[in-house]
């Protein structure tokens, strides 16, 4: 059983490595359009977001709709850090790495603090409150002004003039206009490394004592408590780890943009990531990777159909849910593909 899990994980790593090598060599051979090149980093960002959200939604079984909020914290935290040390640290890779650590730590802190009240709730209530917290984070960051001059840092939540800076001062975060001029440190390789680290953390976490405890809580909270598992502690751990990785993804995202604004991290982004998770299969890490890639690429490749994107999304979602859950469809699948699957040694549940 152990070797089966290991093989499964290795396949997931393998898919990511192969995809990276192919895209990288196409890119350096000049065979990628600029559109595709521009998509490489966002795809990495979305993969990390989807995989980290899967830890909360698929593995611990709590529907969180505030993932974009943690991404937002990481994006602004990381970008702010990079702006501050732009002159002192000149190696882009090192700067990005440190920024990611800052972004992840900040997002983890937010995840922890928000998790304490939120994880007392269940089901729909939890979903609604995470959604609200996601929006709160976005709206608070939307009105933050931070500037720096000879006297040090200035902070305000009103407007840029109330910062009271000296004329030589520089505005770092400019409210709704966000952060401009973040060094463009993000590379496809950095994204690839972040994906690998995320996969490593999440897949190893799932296949360990902690992962078992989390899944036990998902399957039966009461029984998990009865065998001595600390329910609140494990839920909080999941939520925090997931938030930290979303924060790192946010930092990567921020270092790929000239202008970073908080309005990007809205409810739609949270839902988008949730769609990746649901489409890829709850609890299936490889599914999240594939779904995030496919659903980021498709709309760009089918730009002509842009108007119908949300329509197509919802239809695909409904179709997938029926395909995976509806008893009649399961019966139909078993009847038509059952033999095929069994021959491959897979079991149909």
């Amino acid at each position: 059983m152990r070797s089966k899990k290991l093989k499964n994980n290795l396949i997931t790593y393998g898919i990511v490595v192969v995809a990276f090598i192919i895209m990288q060599s196409l890119s350096s051979a000049g065979m990628l359009s600029s559109l595709m090149k521009g998509l490489l980093v966002p795809i990495c960002v979305y993969i990390v977001l989807a995989v980290s959200l899967n830890l909360v939604v698929g593995i611990s079984g709590e529907l969180s709709l505030g993932h974009a909020g943690f991404m937002c914290v990481g994006a602004f935290g990381g970008a702010f850090f990079s702006k501050c040390v732009q002159e002192t640290i000149t190696v882009p890779a090192l700067r990005l790495f440190l920024a990611m650590l800052v972004g992840a730590a900040l997002a983890a802190l937010f995840g922890f603090l928000i998790g304490i009240p939120v994880l007392r709730l269940k089901g729909d209530y939890l979903a609604i409150v995470t959604l609200a917290f996601g929006e709160i984070i976005k709206n608070v960051i939307n009105v933050i002004y931070i500037g720096v001059d000879g006297a040090g840092l200035h902070f305000s939540m009103r407007d840029q003039f109330s910062l009271g800076m000296a004329p030589d001062g520089k505005i770092l975060i400019n409210g709704a206009q966000g952060i401009t001029g973040t060094p463009k440190d993000s590379t496809f390789f950095a994204g690839f490394v972040l994906i690998m680290v995320t996969l490593f953390i999440i897949m190893n976490l799932i296949d360990s004592r902690d992962g078992r405890a989390v899944m036990a809580i998902r399957d039966s909270r009461i029984a998990a408590e009865s065998i001595g598992i600390n329910v609140t502690g494990y839920k909080l751990m999941c939520f925090t780890v997931s938030a930290a990785l979303a924060g790192a993804a946010g930092t990567l995202y921020a270092h790929n943009l000239a202008t970073l604004t908080a309005s990007k991290f809205n409810f739609n982004t949270s839902i988008l990531v949730l769609v990746f998770v649901v489409l890829g299969g709850m609890g299936s890490i490889r599914g999240s990777v594939i779904a995030a890639t496919a659903l980021t690429l498709l709309p760009e490749l089918l730009r002509g159909l842009n108007n119908y994107r949300m329509l197509i999304y919802s239809i695909i979602l409904i179709a997938m849910m029926l395909y995976n859950w509806a008893p009649k469809v399961l019966e139909w699948r078993e009847r038509h593909f059952g033999r095929l699957l069994h021959r491959n040694g897979k079991e149909v549940e």
């Binding site: 078992r212 036990a216 399957d219």
Partner: peptide
């Protein structure tokens, strides 16, 4: 019965060994 339904039988017992 309250088992950890989606987990393998072995993992159910291993969850019991948690502490």
């Amino acid at each position: 019965i309250r088992l950890f339904g989606k987990m393998p039988v072995l993992d159910n017992v291993k969850a019991g060994l948690h502490n």
